[in-house]
Design a binder for these strands. Sequence first.
DNA 1: CTGTATCCAGACTGATACTG
DNA 2: CAGTATCAGTCTGGATACAG
Lengths: 110, 110
Amino acid sequence: MTRPVCTRFHAAIELIGARWTGAILRAVFTDAHRYHEIKAAVPGVSDTMLAQRLRAMEADGLLTRQVDTGTPVRVEYHLTEMGRDLAPVIDAVVAWSHRWIPIPAGGDPD
Amino acid sequence: MTRPVCTRFHAAIELIGARWTGAILRAVFTDAHRYHEIKAAVPGVSDTMLAQRLRAMEADGLLTRQVDTGTPVRVEYHLTEMGRDLAPVIDAVVAWSHRWIPIPAGGDPD
DNA sequence: CTGTATCCAGACTGATACTG
DNA sequence: CAGTATCAGTCTGGATACAG
């Protein structure tokens, strides 16, 4: 009989695959560390969602939030080791997407 | 300035990361091809969701649906080349999950 | 066996306005 | 700059019953 899917795999894919999380992850990987940078890098995300997702990802241990109190306030998000370790996953998805997802009209920044 | 996230990557991660899709993919990869096998391999999924996700994945070109009219009806789901090509992604997620997701109580079938 | 139809509570999302 | 509060609309997901 077919074995149930590994619960750890399940947990992981639901974690990484949660709406926006993948795109945010990729943004932080590619040097977007400030709130407005991440927002700019993830077209279509609203403040509500971005803030919520960042909090969730922080709670999940994927990234850290460093607040630099001052004027203006600066907040930086960085990957934890757990988050950085997702690099192979990101790379695999990028490779797959480049093979199977058609290039959108107007080209793609990559 | 930070570049926008690759739209193809975004599309891919939202495709693969959609609720249940990852687990279903993993199930089909590990030889669950019939509806009831997949359902058994993905604990917690309802008929509604499973049917909906299978249709969506078929529409997305990730898998094929072969109906064998008879009594009882048999339906088999198989990966397309596009779906099979996700193997490295699945493997990367499995590797990551085994490193970072704690083993649930009672052990894990893997 | 392999689903579909319907209902409905609750989760999710986005716009707007506002705060420190 | 980096969010939060609020609110309303949309979508999700499961239970149940039913169909081919």
